[in-house]
Structure formats: structure tokens, C-alpha cells
Amino acid sequence: MSDELVVTTTIDATPQEVFPYLVRPEQLLRWLGTWAEVDPRPGGVFAVDMGQTQVRGSYVTVEPPYRVVFTWGIAGNEHLPAGSSTVEIVLRPDGDGTVVELTHRDLPADRVADHRQGWTNRLGDLAAISRAGRS
């Protein structure tokens, strides 16, 4: 597991049309999570439940309609506590569409040199994140 993850997609809509889906609960819930409470301004809460998994963080940067940064962690998870990693979503106009680039930074990496030690430390993180992704 690397400590940074980049994913991109191209959407057939303008950044103005895509942006609300990153900051409005009812639109956010269409693609991420089962419950959401968000306050899209720096320091505002970013809380999304994905089934049993409670993702907790706060908005760091909100620049409509091009860029959103929020912190990301899992409530009650010692390896990836609330707010411990960072997600940046950049919307770049591309013709009639939008290129969406999502970067997830500061994911827990090996904490110790011993590879086997690091591997077992990350087990909890992987389980929590994977469960979050599937619900």
C-alpha cells in the first residue's frame, strides 16, 4: 500500500455541474455513502457514513467550482483516526467535459522498518477502508 493514491475520470458535464456533488449532502449521497453531514467551508465538518463505517474529517479548502480538499479518517480506528488523511478533488475543464482528479494522501504507510511489523499494523486500516468502499 502506497501512502498516496491518485484516481481520475472524465465526466460529460462542466465543473459547475459537477461541483455540487462534492459539497451538497443530497448529491454527495448519490455516489458516496449512506448518510452525510457536510459544512463545505474551511474547518467545516465532512462526515459520511458508509454502512457501519463512519468517515470523519473536515473541509480544508473549498474553491467552487474547481477544487475541494477535506480530511478523511474512520471514527474509532486507531490506525486511521478521524481527519488523519487528506483527499483532494480537482475539477479541470476539458472541452465540454471535466477531468476529475482525486488524490488521497497521508494514508498510513509502514510505521517501522520491519516489513512484517508494518504489514500487520496496516491490517486494520485496510479492513476499515475496504469495508467503507463496498457499502
Binding site: V7, T10, Y21, W31, I129
Partner: peptide, 24 residues
């Protein structure tokens, strides 16, 4: 750990696929 790593790798790609589908 292989299968779990695969699931983790799928989290954001799956989410962005849903975002694209929903917006369009």
C-alpha cells in the same frame, strides 16, 4: 492480503465511476 489490497484499490475508482454515472 492480496484480495484486500484489491478492494482498497477499488474504493475510489468505484466511487468516481458512480459520480460520473450520476452526474451524467
Amino acid at each position: 492480503l492480496g484480495p484486500v489490497r484489491e478492494l482498497l484499490d477499488d474504493l475510489w475508482p468505484d466511487a468516481l465511476d458512480r459520480l460520473k454515472r450520476v452526474v451524467e
